[in-house]
Simulated assay, not measured.
Amino acid sequence: MDDEPVTPDATAPQPFEQASPDAAVSALAAQFEAELAATSAQVAEARAAYASASDEYQATKHEFDQANQLASDTDQRAEAAEQTATTSARLLLRAVRAGGNPLESADPLAAIFAGTGGNLLQRLGSLDQLARASASPSELAARAEHDAVVARGLRTQADKAKDAVGTIPVESNQQAVASASAAVDSAEARMASVQLQIASTGSVTRFPNFVDDGRLGKAAWVDPLRGQITDGYGPRPSRPLGTGPFHYGDDIAAACSTWIVAAAAGTVESTGPNGSYGNWVLIDHGHGVQTVYGHIENGGTLVHVGEAVVAGQPIALVGSTGLSTGCHLHFEVRIDGQRIDPQPFLAVRGVIVGR
């Protein structure tokens, strides 16, 4: 008798089927994309918190500076009034002593500043006694009392102004800015760690996973500096001068004092010293696009904040400030605050970086 066909048991263990290499790579890429998106969001959140803390600190600092200036001005006025009151008291005492007043051994400042309560004339003697020592003793007494009242009033105002300065939380807000800055550094470090993991797999070649959406339309772009690229965008095998594990721009070598030009038209948003960048310039090109120019020579910045520039306009001189081992330009492109690889971004706009 022929054997009947055996129906496979669906509940029986089935042979393990390995995922295809393409599927494994896709899954890994998807995982990294999710991790990169999460860390990028953390960076954006940390930067927003830093911007908020910085704005609050600047407002508090402005309030503190104004209050401090008011306290200083009021203190100077109080000192001047006290000097005037001292002079008036001495003139009055001279008149009293000349008339043989029994209070001639009294301290005139104690009589003036201890609080006369409007009875200064009674405490120093009668008008008749003062009249023998001065042509206008009543005027001297009135002036001394008036000057003493003014001095006490201004001193009270000065003390209140000093107390007001102490209530402004400028130091705590400054600490909040420092904490927010540290949070940004921590978030960027986490993102760099993910980027390094991606780089080690070779599954992704550009970091972050930026899709060029053609921002700025047909705006003209130029090479910011002619020279050899000595360090490109991406993970660093070594970390010169204690820099981070990921390089967020292109280093273009050139002789010190070589002209650096704006890569595109925009508005200068920031200049001056900035940590490891040394002297830098940040240009906002609109629509979330920014470029950064770092390690500028001391005294070599030619533009100021708020200035409008055009593509190819000289903006600075090559230097070696900040964390730098030689004269070069550190050039970055940022999209919505995220630093991307400048070379492919400019390549599609007809520019080869460094050439």
Rank of each mutant, 00 (worst) to 15 (best):
A263Y: 00
A176I: 04
T84S: 11
H247I: 08
S136P: 03
A106S: 15
A110Y: 06
D2V: 03
F32E: 05
A46H: 01
A51V: 10
A10K: 03
A48P: 05
P5R: 04
R155Q: 11
V96F: 10
A199D: 15
A30L: 02
S126G: 15
T74D: 08
E45H: 09
A133P: 05
Q14L: 07
R77N: 08
A151F: 00
R143H: 11
Q76H: 12
G275P: 00
S40V: 03
N119E: 13
E332G: 10
A141Q: 07
G99V: 07
G242H: 03
A189H: 03
P273Y: 02
W259H: 10
P208T: 06
L93V: 05
G100S: 09
D3T: 11
T167R: 14
V6I: 04
A37N: 11
P108S: 11
A46C: 08
S54M: 08
L130R: 13
T11W: 01
I335S: 09
E35R: 12
T87N: 11
A67Q: 12
N173T: 06
R143Q: 14
H146G: 09
A110F: 07
Q69S: 12
Q18W: 03
A161N: 12
S26P: 00
Q76C: 06
S20H: 00
R152M: 09
G125E: 01
A30V: 00
Q58W: 05
D9S: 02
D128G: 11
